[in-house]
Design a protein around this nucleic acid. Structure first.
Lengths: 253, 253
DNA sequence: CGGTGGGTTGACCAAATTCAATTGGAGTGG
DNA sequence: CCACTCCAATTGAATTTGGTCAACCCACCG
């Protein structure tokens, strides 16, 4: 897409050598050679506002991105406007891999709040596979992990009750946001709309609202300031009938 | 798992050089060097009966498999027995990649009918990434394609009505089975149970039955001989509000 | 100060589940 | 060959869950 990119390296806020994500225990460290390659792989940085469409269904894109800061979501639409959110996107997540490997994008990506992204160039992907086996392996790992997450979402939408399903989703987002340091602020609120949750859960907005209310009445969450705060993470998790995220050191690019 | 494997190469029914799948237009051809590597990667063949569990949730497995003949499905269970089928498996599909990359399996795989599989050894996967860039790329492609299919399933379960959703699933299975030559028999029946469909659709068995009946009344499908036959593929597709599979030449290993 | 985007609520309706049988074919033991 | 059992498909109610409609509230913003 024709999104504006800050192309001059000196203008980047964050060169790969000082990547803030690399410091988190959650991500696996890079070797010097990997770091050097990734530095050349990255061709720019992109900052978008809340509500911006980062990737759009049907497009052929020349780039893939890694989220540096902010949250987003991946979704598909039906002709009549029905929307299904497939998954949420957190710092360290790679987006656009599907599009780059298989041509046309089959989903869109939108920013939940202000988002900054590292931009990587498609044409250098071949070099990655040729010269950096460990990164090629990581790429496969990343794709397999997304598959695993989608499996759990599918189980949730297909077989969990509205209450379990909502508890699962809130737990999932909360866990991911926590491990990646995305809710370090004092308020600990995850900025999201009930319509987003509804479109993820496969429920109507009204029913989602009523279900959230039940969770709040049980003192598991609190809704405020345009998002939700988790009051009782173990309680939420046990209600959801889910085991929680198991990852330790995760690769990223 | 401790499944029996025919380990002696001379006992294999089908060496890679005479792989029956390679002849189908649907799969991309191999270079001689790729073919040679795959021949050493394959360490055996496995034949299982209908209902057999090929991979089980929670296991750590040393192998991955490619389906040679037959159909199967991938599923997860909740503690109380609720089952969600995530996807179906056709000849040429790779199974167990998640488990081999990330340790423990988080889903199970079961045979819908008699299935034969090629067995590949985990320990040789590193060599694949190191020496066969094109195959490493294919592996990533395969993982990304599964992700794409799961996206569509999620859209289906989350946002399509029971009738649309059922039409979608029947179309999807029919298309996949067709491109891979799995329903060449005169009866053209896809052997599957209504319970399987229900557990894929996120619907109850009773409601699935009634929905299938509606599709049959519209002369889109016919239920018989322990499976369904598609009478009007375009009609089914248009009812489903889905664009259909777009793949041309697909890699496989 | 009116408009807009979220969130909330109650009443009513539609979709889907559960319960409870029933049918029919395939396989089994006598 | 027949009675018996099991599995899969069906069917009709009764019931529950979730969806739709229609307000209304409230904070924020130009």
């Amino acid at each position: 897409m024709g999104l504006p990119i800050n192309a001059a390296p000196e203008k980047w806020q964050t060169p790969c050598t000082r990547c803030p994500l690399r410091g988190l225990a959650h991500f696996r460290p890079f070797t010097p050679s990997e770091l050097e390659f990734v530095s050349t792989f990255k061709i720019g940085e992109l900052a978008v506002e809340r509500g911006a469409t980062i990737l759009v269904e049907g497009a052929h894109c020349a780039h893939i991105y890694t989220v540096l800061t902010g949250l987003g979501f991946r979704y598909k639409l039906l002709d009549d406007g029905r929307r299904q959110i497939m998954n949420y996107i957190f710092p360290g997540d790679l987006i656009g891999l599907q599009g780059i490997l298989m041509g046309e994008m089959e989903h869109s990506v939108e920013a939940l709040g202000p988002v900054t992204l590292c931009v990587f160039e498609r044409s250098k992907l071949a070099r990655l596979f040729e010269n950096h086996v460990s990164l090629a392996y990581d790429l496969t790992w990343i794709a397999a992990r997304e598959e695993r997450v989608l499996d759990e979402h599918l189980l949730s939408i297909g077989r969990r009750s509205a209450l379990e399903r909502t508890a699962y989703l809130l737990s999932y987002i909360h866990q991911r946001a926590t491990t990646v340091g995305a809710i370090t602020d004092a308020r600990r609120v995850i900025p999201i709309t009930q319509l987003h949750l509804a479109d993820t859960l496969g429920l109507s907005l009204v029913h989602t609202n009523k279900t959230l209310r039940k969770l709040a009445e049980r003192n598991l969450i609190r809704w405020r300031d345009g998002g939700y705060e988790v009051l009782d993470a173990p309680g939420l998790l046990s209600l959801s009938n889910w085991e929680g995220l198991k990852e330790t050191a995760r690769p990223f690019i």
